[in-house]
């Protein structure tokens, strides 16, 4: 058990290191001069070669690659993520302002899509082969095929423009509010992005829940649960308890694609999260911000995977207490 945890930690450290290295390598591998990535385009364009060299020296980019990497790592260790080209502020600060909103969206939609997806998937599996199962399956695949930004635009169209139920832009009200009114405003403004992201992520959860329960239902213990007199509901709970195992993994791994989806959805709703920040950075060629955001997301996803590995034993007693069988 202890060895297992150590090995897992080791693996994640490795993934983290790879993410950091990639982040270090990207601007250096990309076509063009590093200066183009460090200064706003209009500034970088007007520099003389001499000035360019000065900029490079200022950022330590005239050093050898190993030295640069070492400096990069020690900078990271101090929490130094360079300065935003566009805002002229430390990247770390910018990320700190935005990360909360993304966490709200992503966390909320993970929760919602898991509950709804598992409910639908389990129901389909229990009645598999029926018209209802076929209908749900087709419907979920249809919803899953709608690009998230398209869904977002449609929701805005219906609920904001036509019905005028929710404000379109941002996460905070434009006028000063406080207390409960503020909370109400924040909730109101997060409903549509949350719904969009949830709709976009139900599909995989549903499919995994369905196939997991279908295969659990073939197991002998389900037949036994029935034979020993349990009600249909109890039998169902027996099987679903075990079908939850693969589901937990999918949910947490799915965080990765959700974070990506959030980037697009936040753009549609002008929601001030990390995704919107990435979008703005792309438009402004603000590469330090892009790198910082990427690193933060990578760390987040890696942490989610790690949490899944730690939580899994709580769900599965076979992993929790592997004990040699005794006669």
């Amino acid at each position: 058990m202890g060895g297992h945890v150590l090995r897992t930690v080791g693996q994640y450290v490795l993934v983290l290191f790879a993410a950091i290295s990639l982040n270090f390598a990207l601007p250096r591998l990309a076509p063009g001069d590093a200066v183009d990535y460090l200064l706003p385009p209009e500034q970088a364009g007007s520099l003389s070669p001499e000035q360019r060299r000065q900029v490079l020296a200022q950022f330590g980019l005239d050093q050898s690659v190993p030295t640069q990497f070492r400096d990069y790592l020690s900078g990271l260790a101090r929490g130094d993520l360079l300065f935003s080209v566009r805002y002229g502020r430390p990247v770390g600060e910018l990320l700190g302002e935005r990360v909360g909103w993304s966490a709200l969206l992503v966390g909320g939609s993970v929760l919602l899509s898991t509950v709804v997806g598992a409910f639908l998937g389990f129901r389909s599996a229990w009645r598999r082969g029926t018209a209802r199962d076929a209908g749900t399956l087709t419907g979920v695949m249809l919803v899953d095929s709608l690009p998230p930004f398209f869904v977002g635009m449609l929701l805005i169209l219906v609920f904001s423009v036509q019905l005028d139920l929710f404000p379109i832009f941002g996460a905070l009200p434009t006028v000063d509010t406080s207390g409960l009114a503020l909370v109400a405003e924040v909730v109101k403004r997060s409903v549509l992005p949350l719904a969009t992201l949830t709709l976009a992520s139900i599909g995989p959860v549903y499919l995994v829940a369905r196939s997991a329960l279908v295969s659990e239902l073939q197991e002998d213990y389900v037949l036994m649960a029935e034979a020993k007199g349990l009600s249909e509901r109890q039998v169902r709970r027996h099987a679903e308890r075990n079908a939850l195992l693969p589901l937990s993994t999918v949910t947490l791994i799915g965080l990765g694609s959700l974070v990506g989806g959030a980037a697009v959805v936040e753009t549609v709703f002008s929601y001030p999260g990390l995704g919107r920040l990435i979008y703005e950075a792309v438009l402004a060629r603000d590469y330090p911000v892009l790198q910082g955001a990427f690193l933060l997301l990578a760390v987040g996803v890696i942490l989610a995977n790690f949490v899944n590995d730690l939580l899994y034993p709580l769900l599965d007693p076979r992993v929790r207490r592997p004990r040699a069988a005794a006669t």
Partner: peptide, 22 residues
Amino acid sequence: RLVDLILAFPFMVLVIVLAAFF
């Protein structure tokens, strides 16, 4: 190991960042 590594990354973010650079 390489496959696991790539699967662990948020792929849409990876695509966006790669596209921004390349």
